[in-house]
């Protein structure tokens, strides 16, 4: 069934069962997002970027968690929404090694895009910067991981699990120390990594790269 929504005073049509975020993106209404994957039963909702305001709901909500309803009235650019998005972005940048010219994702990076969209400088002034000690995790035979670029969206973990049944990549540790890890993956023969590369493609920033030799 087709539904009609009013987003930023613009009427859009979409199919039932879609998330609000997807419906907007389908209709060329951009909402910043990092962890969203289409067709996932339960959204991760972890990046806290895709906030919108919906008529009848007091506080901004992440649009990836909302199923479209007919005649929904949505605003994607209220001061409340922008405030949250900018803070989320600044927080992510405060633990990000902003060294774009030496990053392979330069000019193809979601953080850069979002920063441009939200008009936030890549080097926020008010927050101190805290980087992890490990610059490159080279333990995986085919992949390099850059913890200080990673936004922990979890797309790589999800994609890998979807493709291979189990994920070589996993979240490890907890809280501020959370990292993407490939703990003790040494048995090269059992890995499909050498000619997969899905995780690298899924990464919205430059946190994963295939090793040059492979």
């Amino acid at each position: 069934m087709m539904l009609k929504l009013l987003v930023d005073n613009q009427e859009i049509e979409t199919r039932e069962g879609k998330t609000l975020l997807q419906a907007c993106l389908d209709n060329q209404i951009y909402i910043p997002n990092l962890c969203y994957l289409e067709n996932v039963e339960r959204p991760s909702a972890s990046c806290r970027m895709c906030f919108v305001e919906i008529e009848g709901i007091k506080q901004p909500v992440p649009s990836c968690t909302v199923q479209v309803r007919d005649e929904m009235v949505v605003k994607t650019d209220t001061p409340g929404v922008r405030q949250l998005q900018r803070t989320a972005l600044r927080l992510l940048l405060s633990v990000h090694d902003v060294d774009c010219k030496n990053c392979h994702a330069n000019k193809n990076c979601e953080l850069q895009n979002i920063a441009k969209f939200l008009k936030v400088g890549l080097k926020p002034k008010r927050l101190e910067r805290y980087l992890k000690e490990t610059q490159i995790d080279e333990t995986h035979p085919f992949l390099n991981h850059y913890p200080n670029r990673c936004v922990l969206c979890g797309k790589c973990v999800h994609i890998c699990r979807g493709k291979h049944g189990q994920s070589v990549l996993t979240f490890a540790k907890r809280g501020f120390d959370t990292v993407i890890s490939t703990y003790s993956v040494t048995d090269v023969s059992s890995l499909a990594c050498s000619d997969c590369g899905s995780c690298v493609k899924a990464c919205p920033v430059g946190a994963l790269a295939l090793k040059e030799s492979s």
Binding site: S46, S94, V95, L152, K173, R174, F176
Partner: peptide, 12 residues
């Protein structure tokens, strides 16, 4: 004790 999943709690 933050689980580290979402941006606000993990970094904020």
């Amino acid at each position: 004790e933050s689980c580290g999943k979402c941006t606000f709690c993990r970094i904020g």
